[in-house]
Design a protein around this nucleic acid. Structure first.
Length: 221
DNA sequence: GCGACAG
DNA sequence: ATCTTGTCGC
């Protein structure tokens, strides 16, 4: 039994696209020396509509500077490992609505810590050619290595593909990974810098609240 | 073949 | 992700 996806969509082609785009990921810190803005991206659903939110925040104060949303029809069912094909379009549109391009983007999904090394955060980062970081709440693949302090490496096939990170003491960790144009160490620092009193860093949390609010609104019509 | 499986 | 209220605990 094949995976349930539209007849015009081939899993085999998707895998090739993922392997190709994964090779385009830049594992270097190509961020400005002083980060001024961060963006958070997340999606929510209302029936067959995908609601994406892109929220821009000041990197130092974490004050929300701008919120944008985009709504598209869902074209793909949810298939683990193929999430980006389902969420990319709406996320891209919401992101393009921002009046200024952020220095770094936090995406509510895995990045490099993906079976084919191209989670949504990486797919998005490669497409928009911007530094992105994957911020996930559950592990998708790999094993958790020894804890150093507040973080532990996520290892797969002898390679560190991400990190489990306790953003707050005594709380379940979140899973961070390189999206694009950033180093895992820098990604961890940025995530810690942008989290306040919740488990989830502010950019992603704000984006989550925004798209959820709009989806709930559309749902009540 | 079996189980796992981001959002 | 989404369907959903109260409730236990710091």
């Amino acid at each position: 039994m094949r995976e349930k996806v539209p007849p015009y969509f081939s899993i085999q082609v998707a895998r090739k696209v993922q392997r190709y785009l994964s090779s385009k990921i830049v594992m270097k810190d190509l961020l400005p020396p002083f980060i001024e803005t961060v963006a958070g991206i997340d999606l929510a659903y209302s029936g067959n509509l995908a609601v994406a939110a892109a929220v821009l925040l000041d990197y130092q104060t974490l004050q929300v500077l701008e919120k944008k949303v985009a709504v598209t029809k869902v074209m793909f069912p949810y298939v683990p490992t193929l999430l980006s094909f389902r969420e990319l379009k709406a996320a891209f549109l919401a992101y393009k609505h921002l009046s200024q391009t952020p220095d770094v983007i936090l995406v509510d999904a895995h990045g490099y810590s993906h079976p084919f090394r191209l989670g949504f955060a990486s797919h998005f980062g490669v497409v928009v050619k911007k530094p992105t970081i994957g911020v996930a709440k559950k592990l998708l693949c790999g094993e958790i290595g020894p804890w150093k302090n507040n973080w532990a490496p996520i290892v797969a096939e002898g390679e560190v593909i991400g990190a489990a990170l306790r953003t707050r003491k005594g709380i379940k960790p979140i899973y961070i990974s390189v999206g694009n144009m950033v180093t895992l160490n820098t990604a961890i620092k940025i995530v810690l810098h942008t989290t306040r009193r919740y488990r989830i860093p502010e950019p992603v949390r704000q984006a989550h609240m925004e798209c959820t609010r709009i989806a709930r609104l559309l749902r009540s019509l």
